[in-house]
């Protein structure tokens, strides 16, 4: 019996030592900045880490539907509210929860919008366990940084310097509209169900929001390919169950006024920049009607937002010129080809 206890104790001691070592390795390996070149993944969404303390009023989480739709700088321009998009491509709900938790470390948003498309996304138990393990021991996520690390980075405290000029929004000017005249939405299918583990994650997100004094709102942005009435009804009943608000912009199609022939970049799944501006305008109005947010325009503490806006506008101009150039080049080549033929 004594030997048995001795073996158990030595096993526990070994595990404790290992945990300590892995924690030390985690400290050494975590990115010391929130830039991509420093090893940070999803740079744009993680830009929130460099935002001033408690300067974000509205947090938006979810997948690409969110970052293609909500333009925080337009909201800033029109209403003076500060918002940030911690949304990433094909975001899984455990990652959504990670972002919500991460955002609350430095911010105290009054509202958290969760784009509902992520609620329908399946993932394996293994992926969720892996995410959990990576959050406890970041070395499991950032282990590959040894390739680019400088020796002085090993023991340095992280210092986040990257601020996304678009606040997580993605500028998508391409036009690929819906050709048919008939209104068509996503056909009903087996993927119109919220998996059990997503319901649990959602409850966790709701709890975190409540604990931090933020209102969780479920948001469905305009999309023809990722939305249908079945999905609306599921989210609606889920919102009732959780006691949170469900704001479905697809149910306000006329008010939002999206022209699906010209304001989508991929035949109805995501909005393009023109569509995003319309949807954001409606979203901003919704925020204003809530009457709980402050207009920060003119406030010294928020001066950087005006600078960021100018920076983003310049970036858009640059991108537009680049696209124009490419377009002209293509046309030229086309002309050349036709004269040759």
């Amino acid at each position: 019996m004594r030997i048995y206890i001795k073996h158990i104790l030595s096993g526990l001691l070994f595990a404790a030592g290992l945990l300590l070592l892995l924690s030390a390795a985690s400290y050494a390996m975590i990115p010391k900045d929130n830039k991509e070149e420093a090893g940070m993944e999803d740079e744009s969404a993680n830009g929130i880490l460099a935002e001033g303390k408690n300067t974000i009023d509205v947090l938006v989480v979810g997948d690409s539907l969110a970052f293609c739709t909500i333009d925080p700088l337009l909201i800033w321009e029109q209403y003076g509210f500060t918002s940030y998009l911690c949304s990433t491509p094909s975001q899984k709900l455990f990652y959504t929860e990670e972002f919500v938790e991460k955002a609350f470390r430095n911010q105290s948003p009054k509202m958290v919008f969760l784009e509902t498309d992520a609620l329908f996304r399946e993932y394996t138990n293994g992926a969720a366990v892996q995410n959990r393990a990576e959050r406890v021991l970041p070395v499991l996520r950032y282990h590959d940084r040894w390739k680019k690390m400088k020796p002085d980075e090993l023991f340095r405290q992280p210092e986040y310097t990257y601020r996304s000029s678009s606040k997580g929004f993605a500028y998508k000017p391409d036009v690929d509209g819906i050709k048919t005249k008939k209104k068509e939405v996503k056909p009903a299918g087996p993927d119109d169900a919220v998996p059990g583990r997503n319901r649990k994650e959602l409850k966790k997100i709701a709890r975190v929001c409540k604990e931090n004094g933020a209102e969780l709102i479920l948001l469905s942005v305009p999309s023809r390919k990722d939305w249908n009435m079945d999905r609306h009804n599921i989210i609606d009943s889920l919102a009732r169950e959780l006691g949170v608000v469900y704001f479905d912009m697809n149910m306000k199609e006329e008010e939002v006024g999206i022209d699906w022939k010209t304001e989508t970049k991929d035949q109805g799944e995501h909005l393009n920049y023109d569509g995003a501006r319309k949807a954001t305008a409606y979203f901003g109005k919704y925020l204003a009607e809530k009457n709980i947010l402050t207009d920060h325009r003119g406030d010294e503490a928020y001066k950087t937002w005006d600078k960021d806006k100018k920076r983003f506008e310049k970036e858009i101009e640059k991108e537009k010129k680049k696209l124009e150039k490419e377009k002209k080049k293509l046309e030229k080549e086309k002309k050349k080809q036709t004269t040759k033929d």
Binding site: L18, L21, L140, H143, W146
Partner: peptide, 12 residues
């Protein structure tokens, strides 16, 4: 274990 954790080809 540390060698595997740091130099293993896994994750993103």
């Amino acid at each position: 274990i540390l060698f595997i954790v740091i130099f293993g080809a896994y994750g993103l």
